[in-house]
Write a protein that binds this DNA or RNA. Sequence first.
DNA 1: TATTGTTATACTCTATAACTATA
DNA 2: TATAGTTATAGAGTATAACAATA
Lengths: 154, 154
Amino acid sequence: MTGDRATATLDLLLEISTLLATDMRRDLQARGLTAARTHLLWVLHHAGPATQRGLADALQVSPRNVTGLVDALVDTGFVTRTPHPGDRRAVLVELTGKGRALTEGLVGEHRQLAGQLLGDLPAADLARLSAGLEHVADKLRPLVPGDEMGGHRA
Amino acid sequence: MTGDRATATLDLLLEISTLLATDMRRDLQARGLTAARTHLLWVLHHAGPATQRGLADALQVSPRNVTGLVDALVDTGFVTRTPHPGDRRAVLVELTGKGRALTEGLVGEHRQLAGQLLGDLPAADLARLSAGLEHVADKLRPLVPGDEMGGHRA
DNA sequence: TATTGTTATACTCTATAACTATA
DNA sequence: TATAGTTATAGAGTATAACAATA
């Protein structure tokens, strides 16, 4: 039955999700980072300096939560808070050299992981896998309103 | 370049992971359940009554953590604690009628979601997607030691 | 009056360590 | 001596509400 095949495929997708999350979390932990803090660094890496308000929107998380994450990342030297020029209420959060080194390292590891998981798949198979995943993502995106962060994840 | 194609495919996989997690969490929250508690119910659904020790092993989480999760699920009426016949140190955790109704509902919704995401994919495409995902899972499983829970996730 | 970020408070998941009751 | 589960303590992520400074 096709229905069972679909269910088994969704199961596979969920298993892979868990495995990927576990694998990445372990790598980050070794460097003293959590998933939430890394996600914030990742947003800064892609978007450049941002206000905490902007980060809260990007991460879809409360402003109060951002305060805590930025506090921790300042303490550990990954980001700095500087006054916002032109709005004295706001601060600009930006990556330090250490922060930039980290996110650039992540890009490389990300690429390496992609190679490890998909590198020996024939190009035609990779294209078909990609197409299948696009199909799934297209169905899924409308189910989760207020996404916009597609891909920006560590 | 093939490398970039692989990276883009991994990105897609990560985006889908996030979307799936968000979608499922929202559904559960509406019923007063968190991901961790639901995961425990899911294990009971598949394995039947279990000791807290057994649950800790299955969930790969500390015994102390299980105490808290079971406390909450007892309070909300999803499981019961009964004395273990034959070992007076241990307790058996089992689903109540409410708990069973919930997990059975999850099975149905899971199937429905699979149909929604994959139902209109031609059988051949579904088979190729499935094969591609199997390839990824095969590469990924050895990277995450002590898994064994493949598929058992809510 | 609205917005930015903070303090105050609280809940959940998670962990380790020490302890009790049993094996 | 080892195991099952609890109490004690702690850290991280998350949220809402009230508040200060600024727009």
